[in-house]
Write a protein that binds this DNA or RNA. Structure first.
Lengths: 193, 193
DNA sequence: CGCGACGTTGATTTGCCTCAACGATTGTGG
DNA sequence: CCACAATCGTTGAGGCAAATCAACGTCGCG
């Protein structure tokens, strides 16, 4: 039996922002006007290679992944996004260029999403969000640097152990094949660890 | 004979900002008050592991590198920064935590640098810079994602060729040993390509 | 039920590392 | 100004970590 995903509210996103910095009632109202809930069913696409990435997504429930497919047909996962994570192809979203990445749903997933137009409007109406989103991306930049360092480091075992330690809740939910595609190693090798 | 590096001015940074978004005279004045020139001699450290990263640096002339040293003593380079590039340990700089990274000079290097206090003051005085630095970090995030993808991809040859194509001016100036440490492969193997 | 996705294990191959030796170049101090 | 050390690039031989290819069992799902 599926969970009930038809209930949607802006609350999780407001809670999330509140943890970073308090919002005035007026600002909460702006957020609720500029974000819309949307349900993506398992295996459905949020973004397809070649399209412009139209939305910035905040995951309320479920799990998405962003990935690229190389010339040999191998899938490389750049990012997972479970509850309270953001996911979008930043370059494509802000520059409105065609994306080389894909985003799809590993599970039935509820997001709160905003468009480029709505987000820039929000920046104008409440400049505070410029700072919030700057901090968000700074944090994910730091995380990405850490990941790159581990990836460059010698053995494949270390990045794997680090992943299941850093994201224990994720490594339960996600098939090993997906984790392998995230780490850049083969599923067979993950199995041998 | 060494180039004359004693001349320092805020001009290159103002030029840089102007290319992104026009600045009012008042804003230019604020920038020149909040950034200071500084010369780092070859092999001198801008940031040492264990210290808090005190400065955000804009390279006017020369070249810096940011790197980590792993438990085996191997050096892994996260980023080079030549003319018109920014370099800092973002996490350490904004959170004022001890850094696990090092930054040093590959050549005599002139930077324009600002402190956390000066930068936050600048954000307050001219909120426009929130947006500017949000865009800067978005761009470097996109670049980092691209690099991670290439690194995960199978052969070591592709990342190398991509590097010398993307940064031809850098690959002339920088020893192959440094490029190897950036790509996560051995100098010997770079030589065989 | 039967198909497809997933995980496991084994045998073989290979890309890259490690270790080592050797010129060429740079730069540094006596 | 020369001698010596340090840095850099190159090449060779050998070894290992992880990929590849393949076969098989399990599970969930249409």
């Amino acid at each position: 039996m599926k969970k009930d995903l038809t209930q949607a509210s802006i609350e999780p996103l407001l809670d999330y922002f509140e943890k970073i910095i308090p919002l005035a009632d007026e600002e909460e109202k702006l957020v609720s006007e500029r974000f819309q809930p949307r349900l993506y069913r398992k295996r459905h696409y949020v973004l397809q290679e070649g399209d412009v990435c139209k939305h910035m997504n905040f995951v309320v429930r479920g799990c998405l992944r962003m990935f690229a497919i190389d010339e040999k047909g191998n899938t490389h996962i750049l990012q997972f996004a479970a509850e309270n994570w953001w996911i979008t192809d930043i370059g494509s979203f802000y520059e409105r260029k065609n994306s080389k990445l894909n985003i799809d749903a590993l599970e039935d997933t509820m997001v709160l999403q905003t468009s480029f137009e709505n987000l820039t409007a929000l920046y104008d109406q409440a400049p505070k969000f410029n700072r919030i989103f700057r901090v968000l991306i700074e944090n994910s930049h730091v995380a990405l640097q850490k990941r790159l360092l581990q990836n460059i480091s010698s053995t494949a075992e270390e990045p794997y152990l680090s992943f299941i330690q850093t994201y224990p809740q994720l490594s339960n939910r996600i098939p090993q094949t997906q984790i392998a595609a995230y780490l850049g190693i083969t599923p067979e090798f993950v199995s041998r660890i």
